[in-house]
Amino acid sequence: MTVEVIGISVLWLFLFGYVIVASIDFGAGFFNASTIVTGKHHIVNSVIQRYLSPVWEITNVFLVFFFVGMIGFFPSTAYYFGTVLLIPISISIILLALRGSYYAFGTYGTKGHVGYTLMYGVTGVLIPASLSTALIVSQGGFIRETATGRIELDYLALFTSPFAWSIILLSLVSVLFISASFLAYYSSVAEDKGALKLFRRYTWIWSFPTIITALGIIIEMKWHNIEHFQGLLSLWWLFALSFVCFVMSLWLLKKGQYGWSFIFVVLQFAIAFYGYGVSRYPYLLYPNLTIYDGFTNETMAYALITVFILGLLLLIPSLYLVFKLFIMNKPYIKKGKV
C-alpha cells in the first residue's frame, strides 16, 4: 500500500465519520423542526435534545478534520477546489454558522424559542445539499476554463444536470434515513414508546427513496462518466453487499432490534461509501487531479500519519467516554434535565 493510498483512506474515513454524525445531527434538527409544524413536537423533543446537546460541537470538528487533512495530504486540492467552490462552500459555511450559533442561542440562552428551532431544521437540510456540490464537482464535467486561463464552476451545467440533482436528492433522503434509524434506536434505549413509534415510521418512509436514488445514480453514471461507471460495475459485489445490509437493517427494524438495525444502516453506507471511493481511484478531481499528482511531500505525509495515530489514541478513549456518558447511558437518556 503506498502512502498516497493510506492518505486517501484516512481522509475517506474522516469524511465517512462526518457523513454519519452529521446526518444524525442534520436529521435530528429537521425532525425537531418538522414535528413543531405537524404538532408532534412533544413526542420527540426530549429524545432529540438529550442526544444533541452534548455532541453538537463534535460534529463540526469532523468536517474541519476532513478538510484540514485534505489540504495536508493533497495540497493541490486547495487550488482546484478552493478556486472553483468559492460560492457553494461559502454558502455552506454561512448555513453552518447560522445553524451552530442558533442552536447554542436556543439551547443555552433563551430556551425553547421556536424561531431558532425552525432555523436549525431548515439549515440542516440545506447544508448537505450545498456540501455535496464538492462531491459532484469532483466527478468531473462541471469545471470550465475561461479565456484568460482561469478555472471556474460551470453553474449552468451544474444546475441543469440530472446527475447533480440526484446526488443532492440522495444526500437529503439518506440524511433523514440515517438519522431516523439512529433516533429510533435512541428512543428504544430511552424506552420512550411514542418517539420510538414515530422514528420507526420515519425510518421506513425514508429507507426506500434512499435505496432508489442510490441505484439511480449508478445507472446515471453510465452517461455522465463512463470510466467511473465501469469502475462501479467492477465492484458490483460490494454494492450488492451494501444492499444486503440494507435489507438486514429493515428486517431487524421490523424485529424490534433497533441497535443492530442502526449498525446495519451504518454498514450499508460504509460499504457503499468505500465502494464508491475505490471505484473512482485514482482521481480526486476527474480528470485534472489524481491522488498521485496532488500528493504532499513524503516527509509531511509520514509526519501526518504519525500525528493521526497519536491523535486517535487520544480521541478514541474520549469518544468512548462521551458514548458511555450520553449515548449508552440509560439513566441519562431516560431522565435528567437537558
Partner: peptide, 14 residues
C-alpha cells in the same frame, strides 16, 4: 494553501 499546505499541514492538523 497549495504551497504552504506542504509545509504547515502538521500544526494545522494538530
Amino acid at each position: 494553501m497549495e504551497f504552504a499546505g506542504q509545509l504547515v499541514a502538521l500544526p494545522l492538523f494538530m
